[in-house]
Write a protein that binds this DNA or RNA. Structure first.
Length: 462
RNA sequence: GGCGGGUUGGCGGAGAGGUUACGCACCGGAUUGCAAAUCCGUGAAGACCGGUUCGAUUCCGGUACCCGCCUCCA
């Protein structure tokens, strides 16, 4: 059995991964809030942890891994969009308009992540389908004195959980000293966070023991992971920006509600994405979605390759230059594996690289060494979600008949060989290249291949 | 202010206390009418200052710079 080692944020060390139950390895990834198209940064954890999912399936068997990724469909930005639509005269109740908006966004999300070659998780729970479980968990936390209700709100009593801050290496007192916490009259302690909050008529709400309201952000992941994976499971993953407060709060809620369990044993966090060396932000004008890139003609497989070139634990810089290089490499590989049946199993060197804390960059380096063995290359790349059938249409040559051009060029060239005047040959060659055709001339003859930028309208007449 | 991460050859980017990472680019060669593609090959590194060591880019300490989180955020 391959030994997998993963960097556990909880211990800040690389540890040997041993699942609680090898028959059912369980991982949870914090999914998107479905208020709009996923931006490029949203895609990094999806791709990175998709590779982890593939690795776990490889090592423990495809039927022995349970992967959960939630959809957060309770959120003020969603409410705002739905409300705006209602005010603009849209049909239906606010709840229906919210559902409409989240359905639409989930559809986009699936389309975009599919384009990146990410496998669908086994479960994709929606927060709104687990409100009952959240209410039950909140009630239980109140019962156990870890939470309290005040003015329609329910708050988690941070001081009641001794290990609060252990994941992110903070102490409650230090954070209060930083004084960047919201002080509210209904809080016993400024660090306490919301489990439940009241909704007015303009907001979606559910009936609860504390009045009509909606859940706070963190409780959904605690409730859904418990329902689908149990009180103890193997891996919890997400972006490093979620480490605090989101994951810290999840731990506090889950461990207090289910002291019999240990919640997540391994915490994996991916570092942030930058664009051309700068943080992606709307104000810098370098903010874009996955769909924007796809629409620009950058294949999802290329985006995926660029992501995997950098270790997930390091900041990753998205640049046009990287995308161009990735495309060239994939195009070359696609050419090598075209029509080849993959080997029965991936190369041990690739499995070993991935088993070493998801060293995707190292795995790609290994793939480069397999140019002479396309079957092995294809089988190994599949572990990274690359070179798979169904994702390579972009690299296929356009279906055009260039035989007339080839014959013409061949004839002119034959003549030139005798006259030693190659000007006509060079002129035709240039024209073909300008149309995006790769021209290969050898003793054996002339070969014309439509290339990446092929444009039939620019073909010269012959 | 608190917490965390980073700094590797022209560019991207890994591993390993002592032996070539790898890819792209570049340069040389083969091949070609010239190219392209392909093949072969060379060169090039470890922010700075100390320490540990027979030996450090790799471990430890410090400095500088960069980045993230602490507020919705992957």
């Amino acid at each position: 059995m391959t030994e997998i080692r993963l960097h556990n944020t909880k211990t800040r060390r690389k540890e040997v991964f041993e699942p609680l139950d090898p028959q059912n390895v369980r991982m949870y990834l914090c999914g998107p809030t479905v208020y709009d198209r996923a931006h490029l940064g949203n895609a990094r954890p999806v791709v990175v942890f998709d590779v982890l999912y593939r690795l776990l399936r490889q090592v423990y068997g495809a039927d022995h891994v349970t992967y959960v990724r939630n959809f957060t469909d309770v959120d003020d930005k969603i409410n705002a969009t739905a409300l705006a639509r209602k005010e603009a005269g849209a049909e239906g109740t606010l709840e229906e308009l919210i559902r409409e908006r989240t359905e639409e966004t989930i559809g986009w999300y699936h389309a975009d992540m599919d384009a990146l070659g990410a496998l669908r998780p086994n479960y994709e729970p929606r927060a709104t389908d687990y409100i009952g479980a959240m209410i039950a968990m909140i009630a239980d936390l109140i019962e156990k004195d870890h939470a309290y209700a005040k003015d329609g709100h329910v708050l988690f009593r941070v001081r009641s959980y001794q290990n609060y801050g252990a994941l992110s290496g903070r102490s409650v007192d230090d954070m209060i000293a930083g004084a960047r916490v919201e002080v509210a009259p209904f809080k016993e302690d400024p660090m306490d966070f919301v489990l439940w909050k009241p909704s007015d008529d303009e907001l979606p709400g559910w009936d609860s023991p504390w009045g009509r309201g909606r859940p706070g952000w963190h409780i959904e992941c605690s409730a859904m992971s418990y329902e689908l994976l149990g009180a103890s499971f193997d891996i919890h993953a997400g972006g490093i920006d979620l480490q605090f407060p989101h994951h810290e709060n999840e731990i506090a809620q889950s461990c207090c509600a289910h002291p019999e369990g240990g919640f997540a044993r391994f915490w994996l966090h991916n570092e942030m994405l930058q664009v051309e060396g700068k943080k992606m932000s709307k104000s810098l004008g370098n903010f874009f979605t996955v769909r924007d890139l796809l629409d620009q003609g950058i294949p999802g497989e290329v985006i995926r390759f660029v992501f995997l070139q950098t270790h997930y634990g390091k900041p990753m810089d998205w640049t046009a230059e990287k995308a161009a290089q990735a495309e060239a490499t994939l195009r070359k590989w696609r050419g090598l594996v075209a029509g080849i049946e993959p080997a029965p199993s991936p190369a041990p060197s690739v499995v070993a690289a991935l088993a070493d804390d998801l060293n995707t960059a190292g795995a790609i380096a290994e793939l480069h060494q397999m140019a002479g063995d396309p079957a092995l290359l294809k089988a190994s790349a599949a572990l990274l979600g690359l070179l798979e059938d169904g994702m390579g249409e972009w690299a296929e040559a356009p279906q055009v008949d260039l035989s007339a051009h080839a014959v013409a060029l061949s004839n002119i060239r034959a003549k030139a060989m005798e006259t030693k005047d190659f000007s006509a040959v060079d002129a035709l060659k240039s024209a073909l290249m300008a149309a995006g055709v790769e021209v290969r001339m050898s003793k054996a003859g002339v070969e014309l291949l439509p290339g990446a930028g092929f444009d039939a309208s620019k073909l010269p007449d012959v």
